[in-house]
């Protein structure tokens, strides 16, 4: 029994992505239990909602990115197949236009739009705001997926594989979608989606933090959904984080960090550890599938 468990753990450890997913989840569970014991109830509620909102937005981001990238790729290769160079050029120009805007700037501008819509009471439910936040982030990150898909398809088109299927009368749509993207690239796509999940969390946290600090608190504090980024910008969290620095010069206060300054520490830890975890999962997955 002991030996079997050892072998199972050893096998799991070799699959770094699954290992990190499991250990990361356990660590977050332990954090939650600790917070449940020592963090005050309203702050815990905020933390839970912020954490969940961040994950929901990031999940929506990868879903929207996948749909956007797939549609763009279909159009691009349809135009290419028909030799409609002008249409392909127009599409590429549009994509490059988005590419030319730094992601963080693009998302910030998108949040300005959300703010306006909130002020005009066009966005009334919080799910609408979450969805729009995700759509805006997706708009500035989906190009990475487009580039990957395009690269994979172009590579396979240069092989006999593609032409051999085409001359048998198999449609380009099937070859591109089933044979190239699904059968030969889904590992690469999934890996990219994991990376985009991380990028999305990073962008959310950065922008939420910026707007919570720099823009009208009337709008951001009351109307935007709570996320890890906006929680980090709260004055309580900032004080908690300042306490970390203070504890360096007063080591006797160190134990208080984990009992009295939990909100800021938990938020900061969640953000950093979530990003590390996603990075490790992505690397482990790529290594395991030899991508």
């Amino acid at each position: 029994m002991k030996r079997k468990l050892g072998t199972a753990l050893n096998n799991l450890y070799k699959k770094k992505d699954q290992w990190w997913l499991l250990t990361g989840s356990i660590i977050f569970l332990l954090l939650w239990v600790w917070d449940r014991l020592f963090l005050n109830a309203p702050a815990l509620r905020f933390l839970q909602i912020g954490f969940l909102n961040t994950l929901i937005i990031s999940t929506l981001v990868i879903l929207i990115s996948l749909i956007l990238a797939w549609v763009i790729i279909q159009k691009m290769f349809f135009f290419r197949g028909r030799n409609w160079a002008w249409a392909e050029l127009l599409l590429t120009f549009f994509l490059n236009l988005i590419r030319s805007i730094p992601q963080i700037v693009g998302v910030l501008l998108g949040y300005v739009l959300i703010t306006i819509l909130l002020q005009l009471s066009i966005l009334t439910a919080s799910w609408q705001t979450l969805l729009l936040m995700a759509a805006i982030i997706a708009l500035f990150v989906f190009l990475e997926l487009v580039d990957l898909m395009q690269e994979r398809i172009t590579f396979y088109q240069s092989l006999d594989f593609y032409n051999a299927m085409k001359v048998c009368g198999i449609s380009s749509f099937r070859i591109i979608n089933f044979n190239i993207l699904w059968k030969n690239s889904r590992g690469h796509i999934l890996n990219k989606l994991i990376a985009l999940f991380g990028v999305s969390i990073f962008l959310q946290c950065s922008v939420d933090f910026i707007i919570s600090v720099g823009l009208s608190t009337k709008v951001s504090a009351l109307n935007l959904p709570v996320t890890l980024g906006s929680l980090l910008a709260k004055i309580d969290s900032k004080q908690d984080i300042l306490a970390i620095g203070y504890s360096f010069s007063h080591p006797a206060r160190l134990s208080r960090l984990f009992l009295q300054h939990l909100q800021g520490i938990s938020v900061a830890f969640s953000i950093v550890f979530l990003l590390i975890m996603i990075y490790k999962i992505s690397n482990g997955y790529a290594e395991r599938h030899r991508l």
Partner: peptide, 13 residues
């Protein structure tokens, strides 16, 4: 018309 390519390794998915 149809064509059978030379290297099956490269012509098949």
């Amino acid at each position: 018309a149809g064509m059978v390519f030379q290297h099956a390794e490269e012509a098949l998915d």
